[in-house]
Design a protein around this nucleic acid. Structure first.
Lengths: 191, 191
DNA sequence: CATCGTGATGGGACTTGGTCTCATCACGGT
DNA sequence: ACCGTGATGAGACCAAGTCCCATCACGATG
């Protein structure tokens, strides 16, 4: 029973999200998540490296999409334009289904240190991925790092705005990236 | 015996650093660290929230120093100048003793995922602290976030350079912050 | 139709991080 | 000599995460 039913991974994610919402992240044991999904602890850890990762599934693929998005940006595009292209390329990943669970997910993450820590690591991962991709385009290292960091900032703000209001993720992040760029240039003047 | 000898916390840090270097972070149990320090597991967890934290001691105070450094920057100073002042204010923290253990510490952190995760969280903590401090100075939120992020970038690069070459931490980060700012402004032109 | 290989699962032993509680000891002050 | 305080020791306890092996469903093959 339960065995061989499809979408084990997805079932685990839903069970985890529900339980975290009901009792909080810390009061939920992995065995409990697995049980609600009709599986066992062993199987849980076969699908996710650790308990935290169940909330960050697919985020590693996302880094790859960012990488190829930058690599395939038009030749003449500057670093920030390439970052913008990557943010647009990633918008296919953010479906309505994603958006439905977004707020619940965000609330759980915000309420727990371990999870905020994992989120921070993911963002660093994005920044590193974009930095490397930019360097492979011939961008100097420091410029690449700065552009990537601003890109992550735009990504985060865009994601929040997208959760709030919906719409096209690419279009939204294009706006937030422009805002970030303007904020950066206003800093120069203030010196 | 062992009991009531001074500097328990420091002894734990040294024991941990040594053992991590000898056997790696993952192959070292907390009980073993405590034993080498002449203490017990209980005492270890009284001094550090978890096993990772033994490598990040005092980093929370550092965030506070950054905060006050920004708050006490000259009135007319722009956001980036305030960040620069904070980086200088923090240089008292980086003594030669700190620098002696720096490379060993960095190597251990680089070789383990959990530790890189914790390091990422600390950097986010710095960014948040500086962002908040800048907002309290009347800087708009987005400008504050961008300035803080650039400040963290400069901090990281400055720290690496300081470990490598030594010298005055404040002076070094002042240079890296200038480089970061120039890189940012060169991005504008490339659009 | 029987067999076999493969891949996903179940199950349980085991280590270790981390929490909690209570007893114990050193020190300073009275 | 007594007492209060604060840091430590000791051990029970829970859950995360690892490991190993048995088990089962499915598709391919003969």
């Amino acid at each position: 029973m339960g065995r061989w039913e499809p979408d084990a991974r997805e079932r685990l994610v839903r069970a985890a999200l529900d339980l975290f919402g009901e009792q909080g992240y810390e009061n939920t044991a992995v065995a409990q998540i697995a049980e609600r999904a009709g599986l066992t602890k062993s199987t849980f850890f076969r699908h996710f490296r650790d308990k935290r990762e169940v909330l960050f599934g697919g985020q590693d693929e996302l880094a790859e999409v960012l990488t190829t998005g930058i690599a395939e940006a038009p030749e003449g595009a500057g670093p920030l334009a390439a970052v913008g292209a990557a943010l647009v390329a990633v918008s296919a990943w953010f479906t309505d289904a994603q958006r439905a669970y977004g707020p619940q997910r965000q609330a759980v993450i915000a309420g727990n240190d371990e999870l905020r820590e994992r989120a921070a690591l993911k963002m660093v991962g994005f920044a590193v991925a974009m930095t490397d991709a930019l360097k492979r385009r011939g961008v100097a290292e420091l410029e690449a790092a700065v552009a990537a960091e601003l890109g992550v900032l735009a990504f985060q703000r865009g994601y929040d705005a997208w959760l709030e209001a919906g719409g096209d993720f690419g279009e939204i992040t294009r706006r937030t990236l422009r805002d970030v760029r303007e904020a950066a240039s206003s800093l120069e003047g203030a010196e």
